[in-house]
Design a binder for these strands. Structure first.
Lengths: 203, 203
DNA sequence: GGGTATACCTACCAATCGTTAGGGAGATGT
DNA sequence: ACATCTCCCTAACGATTGGTAGGTATACCC
């Protein structure tokens, strides 16, 4: 070990002890670096060596904290939707009982976007990189994702039944607007999109 | 050369001669395969060998048609926005002179989405894969992209000045809603988003 | 101070990446 | 018939990928 490495290590160790001890573990730094790379460079460009460089270690050292690259990616993606999920559900829970479906939808939108911005690397990673994950990894990540999407589906359905969204507009179009991605079903979605953004609306 | 390869080649040659001769050249097949891969698997997963396999040739043969992988990717991405650009501008040109900014915006939305669906591989590629392109390639592709984004900026500005969009809503938020991606500026965008989708609106 | 973990290192592995060199087979023009 | 052009092939190259093996230095417990 070189002298500079030793200095860096002891400095980091003492810093970790003096301040928040739960937040800056070696594993967390790796997750942060991976989240940033997934967001800005994509899955395949998120190499173990690129992760290591951002953390300030060597690639091989990653495997002391995680068994594989995909394990790290999976945790980042899932944390991304999990944190937004929590933000939205707790925002909805904080609403008074007499809140209308529209109030709930608006609160959910706000919570979703604010949380997305706060934990932007993790959340952006789960939105932007998800579509390009290797099929197997995408399947495992889809579980947590579905759990979140279901919240919106229910929200949209309530708003639709209350008359806030035109009956003939597919709810998928509206959901797509916010969450992005997803498979494209029909070209009906085009007119739906226009109607949601600028079309007639009652109440 | 094996017998089956020879058969396939002569069959393809005669087919190309009998039907449309300009559409199914070897180069076009490579572009199609690249577009599909960029859309569904992302940039890094779009390997020369994967492209070749979809076309039915070997990786090395690609270099008879294109000088490099990035040349192919660039053409696909640029064709993706070019085709939508044309669709939107011609839809706008077809509008009567007395069309309101709102009419124009709605027509543009429709043209954008319909065209996106028709040439979905190329367009989706340019939207979904763009963010993860290598920095240098992204720079060259940004030119054509900007040209298209400017159309929307003007469209939005006209609609805003005519009062269709609340004054205090950033136009970037609205544009993001349709075109996706882009860097995230402030958290004001969150409330803007909510307001666009469900907020007050006049006219 | 000895022993056990922890956290990192170097050095390598097989696989895969984009790309190139050189050759073979069919079509075309003369 | 011969040369030429087009299109594709095989075989390899250097670089880079995810991952492994084995060693080293620090920190903490007894």
């Amino acid at each position: 070990m070189t002298i500079s490495q030793a200095v860096a290590r002891t400095a980091k160790a003492s810093a970790a002890k003096s301040e928040a001890s739960d937040q800056n573990g070696g594993a967390r730094q790796i997750l942060n670096a991976t989240a940033w790379l997934l967001r800005h460079r994509g899955y395949e460009a998120t190499t173990t060596r690129a992760i290591a460089e951002r953390v300030g270690i060597k690639a091989g050292s990653i495997y002391h904290h995680f068994p594989s690259k995909d394990t790290i990616v999976e945790r980042v993606i899932n944390e991304g939707v999990l944190v937004v999920n929590k933000a939205v559900t707790s925002a909805l829970d904080a609403l008074p009982n007499k809140a209308t479906p529209r109030d709930r939808l608006q609160a959910a939108i706000k919570a979703h976007l604010l949380s997305s911005l706060e934990h932007s690397d993790y959340t952006s990673a789960s939105i932007r990189a998800f579509a390009f994950l290797p099929p197997e990894l995408r399947r495992t990540c889809r579980v947590e994702r579905r759990r979140y999407e279901d919240i919106w589906q229910q929200l949209m359905r309530d708003a639709s039944e209350a008359g806030y969204i035109p009956k003939d507009v597919s709810l998928d179009a509206a959901r797509l607007m916010l969450l992005g991605a997803g498979r494209v079903p029909i070209d009906k979605i085009a007119t739906d999109f226009a109607q949601i953004a600028f079309g007639a609306r009652r109440a």
